[in-house]
Amino acid sequence: MSVLRGFLWLLAFLLLGQTLVQLLHIPMPSGVIGMLLLTLWFGYRGRMNPDVVHVSQPLIAMLALLIMPGVVEIFFVADQFADQWAAILTALIAGTLLSVLSSLLLMRRYLPADDEPANPLGSIDHE
């Protein structure tokens, strides 16, 4: 039951986010506004609702799965952009590598060093 109660909390904040988006014409999706509102609510209460914590773990683990169905379509419309592929792939791959490099350099320059020992990038499990 705890998971369902947590899910209801998430839906309530999603609807609250949608309400604000529509009333104030915010150019952002309801989910992001809902997330910010829920963070503020936790901050106001000074603690997290355990039901929401329960349901959030499996949902966050599912995020990648939830993007996948939208991606499938690209294989079916690929020939529409047949003469553009070189430009598109170069722009995406080179552009992303460049932007990763510049954000890493920027952040290393301006973020103060952490005192704690850093997490080694070790064991990774997908399940």
């Binding site: 989910g31 809902g34 997290m48 959030s56």
Partner: peptide, 10 residues
């Protein structure tokens, strides 16, 4: 996707 985005508040 909507509730999962809200769950990132945790």
């Amino acid at each position: 996707l909507g509730p999962a985005t809200v769950a990132l508040a945790v």
